[in-house]
């Protein structure tokens, strides 16, 4: 057991923690030339260069706005569908579940290409709204799955209880279901934002290069920015989900029966 945890520590350091530290170290120093025997030159130049770029701020803002709306729609669709899958009895449920997962089993690029002409006709091509809609495709199936699992854990009996006591649909949703779905809300926040930030190809296809999100700035950066700036940019990508997570955590505190973490339970 002891030995096991040593192996775990070595593997985790090597494959997960050290790469992250390398990224951080590189972002705060000039590009490395260890082979010449040079050491680290600590500097903030990469961040200055990155943050002075007006495109970065614009793209960050666009990405956050798109990510936020995508998240809201994911929660809406995920909660309703998760509840329906748990409480409505019908035949062939496994197939419906598989069908709802299918959008992430079909290439999203094929779907985006197929929807492109429709988006042009509907006036959604080259707009943020169009990008939001296409970002739903790779995210919603995960959200449905997460919320479905969570509802199943709560159980049908617990979901009937507020109804018997006299609660209406929305009251039940806000007073009982959403507070019990907190862990699911957190996972969905992370999943949705990271996936939305990961989409270069479908954003380019539907946004036509005019909806400038962070990935669309990242790829051209690769051509001419040095390792320090690229490392800083890479870390910038991780800051956004963390930031959004804090925002959602604050929103969760507004739910009924939430207890402020610093307040004693009793």
């Amino acid at each position: 057991m002891k030995q096991n945890s040593h192996i775990f520590l070595v593997l985790t350091l090597l494959f997960f923690l050290i790469p992250l530290l390398v990224l951080v170290a590189q972002s705060f120093s000039a590009p490395w030339r260890f082979q010449t025997g040079a050491g680290l030159d600590w500097e903030l130049r990469s961040y200055e260069q990155l943050l002075q770029n007006p495109m970065l701020w614009k793209a960050t803002f666009t990405s956050i706005c798109i990510g936020f709306v995508v998240l809201l729609l994911n929660v809406l669709i995920g909660v309703f569908t998760g509840k329906a899958l748990t409480t409505v009895p019908f035949k062939g449920k496994p197939w419906v579940e598989a069908l709802l997962l299918s959008p992430i089993l079909i290439p999203v690029l094929a779907i985006a290409m197929g929807l492109h002409i429709f988006m042009i006709r509907a006036g959604l091509a080259d707009t943020a709204l169009g990008v939001i809609i296409i970002h739903l495709v790779p995210t919603v199936p995960y959200s449905i799955k997460v919320f479905h699992n969570s509802y199943q854990q709560i159980g049908r009996a617990m979901l009937e209880q507020p109804h018997i006591l006299g609660s209406g649909f929305f009251r039940q949703l806000f007073t009982v279901e959403l507070p019990l779905l907190k862990p699911a809300l957190r996972s969905v926040t992370f999943l949705t934002i990271v996936i939305s930030l990961s989409q270069y190809a479908i954003t380019a296809v539907i946004g036509g290069g005019r909806v400038l999100t962070l990935p669309l700035v990242f790829f051209p950066f690769l051509e001419n920015a040095d390792a320090s700036v690229m490392s800083a940019f890479s870390l910038w990508f991780a800051v956004i989900p963390v930031w959004m997570y804090i925002l959602v955590e604050a929103a969760i505190l507004l739910l009924p029966y939430s207890r402020l973490p610093w307040r004693n339970k009793r």
């Binding site: 009996a157 617990m158 009937e160 209880q161 507020p162 109804h163 018997i164 006591l165 006299g166 609660s167 209406g168 007073t175 009982v176 507070p179 019990l180 029966y257």
Partner: peptide, 29 residues
């Protein structure tokens, strides 16, 4: 519908809302 009937049901399991205190559970009803 169940939520409009003046009938309450106490189950085999207590099914208290885990995120509410004893008092909040009663107040909820």
């Amino acid at each position: 519908k169940a939520n409009r009937r003046d009938i309450s049901l106490v189950f085999q399991q207590p099914l208290l809302f885990p995120h509410m205190t004893v008092e909040e559970n009663i107040v909820y009803g």
